[in-house]
Amino acid sequence: MENFIFGRYMPGNSLVHNLNPAMKILISFYFIVIVFFANNYLTYALLFFLCFISLYLSKISFGFFLKGIRPLILLIIITVLLQLFFSAGGHIYFSFWIFKITSLGLISAAYIFMRFMLIITISTLLTLTTSPLAISYGIEKILSPLKKIHCPVDTIALMISIALRFVPTLTDEATSIMNAQRSRGVDFGNGNLVKRIKSLIPLLVPLFVSAFKHADELSVAMEARGYSPEMKRTKFKSYLIGMNDYISMMLFFVISLMIIFFRN
């Protein structure tokens, strides 16, 4: 688990780190949409080029990045194999029982693989370069038009940031409870399925107890400092939309136009 970087934030000071978070989230979603427009090798090459540039500008080392997404390879391989063996059409190269390798299957397996790689790269890059707080700010900004229909966007954003803020706290808590129970002779992840599930009870009960305790204490502390959901809140850190944001938006837009032009 220690090497798993998917969904984690890595502090830094690069062009990608400093983009406006709302813009970054929108761009990432936009990228995921245009991935599905690509349908030949040239268009996929363009997308990989875009990923490569983003990764380069984020100053995150390439080796570290590849090593980090390695745990996801299994998922990718299974999907690719399913595509490879079970999609019909085109010339049949090989057939055994219910498995068939066809020319169309080969192509669609290659496409699935590339789509996976592209989407994982860009979403990992988003979370690696954007702090959890910035992400919740971005979501708040993106959802802010919903305020017009009395949707409590501020409260939702606060809930998201509190949830994100407590992930490391609860992880630490879980580790310390696990250690305590392991030294009392629990074998986590050993034995048959029933035994394994049973061994989770001594972990989950104290974890829930402490989560509720945290929630209770936090709500008291917030009220003590005068929190009220009706009040308009200001931001400690404001994110402006700068030149770099426009340039990166333009880059993604131009590439997407090229993809629509080159796809067949």
């Binding site: 808590e173 310390s176 409870i177 250690n179 305590a180 129970q181 392991r182 030294s183 009392r184 002779g185 009870i201 001594p202 009960v205 104290p206 107890v209 402490s210």
Partner: peptide, 21 residues
């Protein structure tokens, strides 16, 4: 590891957190 963990008893900070039964 059980024989070792039986031999060495660990009482952590705030051990009441480990209560669950």
């Amino acid at each position: 590891l059980k024989p070792l963990r039986k031999k060495v008893g660990l009482i952590f900070q705030f051990p009441e957190k480990q209560l669950f039964a």
